[in-house]
Design a protein around this nucleic acid. Structure first.
Lengths: 342, 342
DNA sequence: TTGTACGCGTTATCAG
DNA sequence: CTGATAACGCGTACAA
């Protein structure tokens, strides 16, 4: 009896117009702050809005304006530690630009459910993380001029889609060189990412480059799959250890795999860094809290998200954008490599 | 010249109707599979759909049907390790029920940006994680009969909103009793969650209950804030250690804080479990990979997400639902408590 | 500066 | 089983 709320009939623009004694066009104007309105009437409208608790129906807005004001994000899965910072960057940038975010993860869904859930009918543009959208769908989107930006993946042949990623090769080389130069490692294991993962193949090139530079022959036996997964990397390490393979250093393709490797090494009674030196990649928030604290290549993951989002927004606004942005990586020394922290 | 795609004019229901030689009503029927249509004409429609690459505009659908087919999820932040499993459960359940998911995180946004982004105008129901929505907004939603389900938080006084959570108190008691009975701890530190966090206060009750049961007096000095944050828990531990407080066991309110505590303890030269025994809560995927592997209370986090989503969907369909679901927790013994693993 | 009227693409209702 | 046609709520030329 106190608050004039209309339980099952949310106020519409017409209700507001009536209460304020103006036309719906005027209401629309003050709500969207577009064309000028006399302050006095604007105030009346705002009062009416407040009193009726009016919130514009998003659907009607989209239908009328042909814009969704929503960005789509497609990722394989929200892989805990790595993804959180990136999402933070994306959300922040999207919010600041006035866009909502529709997130779609492909890994949890059956293949037949993955089609068409995000596209031109419900978003103004798409952020696509490495390996999560079919080529056919991408080609279609591209052919209708739909804005797309890639995260950590360069565009397929023929599609000129902007990409934002990090200096994978350089970072990897940095990591491996540190192991070689400072800690005198000679047999360095590389824990790769999933099959065909682009980040991983760049990181492997960096690994090989560093080897070459120091005249260490490349040994294929020293490349093993870590899958960017703690669990699977641990499994791989167990098998490797059992096989009798010898190595004095590990460059893990990402920090999550490093966690698994650390775990398997400990189980086997091997000490890091005394027996085996290790360097990771990404610098997830957890890295500094591992035992030992993980020396790793810092990647500006939050920045990647933020910048990619900015790019997408500019694409949507028909501004010109860079086609490729490479963010710098750098070596962050902690203890797993054998360096002493004072 | 080969594929009949209309670059900038996505096909509408009318285009399909025209090509198939039927009315738009029939197209709608076929697309939505509602009322029966003669197989022959249905086939013609489907062919037309495929040929024109027709996808119904979500906005138009929502506007006409008054249903969004979207679930809203509001969380403070996507806190890496803990949240990933819950999200997996939510996404799976939402997908199976045919709903999209709109995710909104409050922690990354300025307070004034947090209002009204998710509500009755763009979702059919809301999943609200502990402490992320203002009471006023909740009251409003409740007053208009909008479906809401709480995750890890009971409803405020007067709002009968269903809640799904885990056996916090029982789990906490289990953890502390293990420390007391099996490992003879007498001075057990409790690392609490954020101020006012409901999970945390239940866990503290479990902690106290276990103490009481074994005639150990409660010492307020042994309750310190871990904030459910690795970083902040580490900071707290450093301060505690410096202050000279003594304790022989730690019950960490959640595993993320346990990671931080472990880290600070190591820095200080203290060994776990030799010098200090530790038990966590949640059993995040990482727990088994810590050094030492973390003994913790397993909480079925993915199940919580799944069940809460089911509940919400049933609420939306006007079915009756349980008002409170408590999922069981259990002690998962690894090594941080001092147990020897064979 | 403000109001009128139309269009956005679907769903739902009601005849046929 | 199928076809007209009226909502759905808002943005926006265009007119006043």
């Amino acid at each position: 009896m106190d608050i004039p709320s209309h339980p099952n009939n949310p106020a519409t623009i017409e209700d507001v117009a009536r209460l304020a004694g103006v036309s719906i066009a005027t209401v629309s104007r003050v709500v969207n702050g577009k064309s000028p309105v006399v302050p006095a009437t604007a105030q009346r409208v705002m009062d009416a809005v407040r009193e009726l608790n009016y919130v514009p129906r998003a659907a009607a807005r989209i239908l009328a304006s042909k814009r969704t004001n929503t960005l789509g994000l497609i990722v394989p899965e929200i892989s805990g530690e790595f993804f959180a910072p990136m999402l933070r960057g994306i959300e922040a940038a999207a919010g600041e630009a006035g866009f909502d975010l529709l997130i779609h993860t492909t890994a949890y869904k059956k293949p037949e459910m993955r089609r068409h859930t995000l596209g031109e009918h419900n978003t103004d543009g798409l952020l696509v993380f490495i390996g999560s959208v079919q080529l056919a769908e991408l080609t279609r989107l591209h052919s209708i001029g739909f804005p797309v930006v890639f995260l950590h993946q360069t565009a397929p042949e023929g599609l000129n889609i902007p990409v934002v990623t990090v200096e994978n090769k350089k970072g990897a080389a940095l990591a491996v060189e540190h192991l070689i130069e400072t800690h005198e490692c000679r047999r360095i294991l590389y824990l790769s990412g999933p099959e065909g993962n682009e980040d991983s193949s760049w990181r492997e090139r960096g690994y090989r480059l560093a080897l070459e530079k120091h005249d260490i022959p490349f040994d294929p036996a020293l490349v093993a799959p870590g899958y960017y997964s703690t669990k699977r990397a641990a499994q791989t390490m167990r098998e490797l250890l059992e096989s009798g393979l010898t190595f004095d250093g590990i460059f893990s393709g990402d920090d999550m795999a490093a966690v698994g490797a650390l775990s398997a090494l400990r189980e086997a009674g091997l000490r890091v860094p005394e027996d085996i030196k290790m360097v990771g990649f990404d610098d997830i928030p957890l890295a500094r809290h591992l035992t030992p604290p993980l020396t790793t290549i810092h990647a500006p993951t939050e920045e990647v998200g933020r910048i990619a989002t900015d790019l997408l927004v500019r694409l949507i606004r028909h501004e010109t954008v860079e086609m490729e942005i490479l963010l710098p990586t750098e070596l962050t020394i902690r203890q797993s490599c054998g360096c002493k922290i004072v």
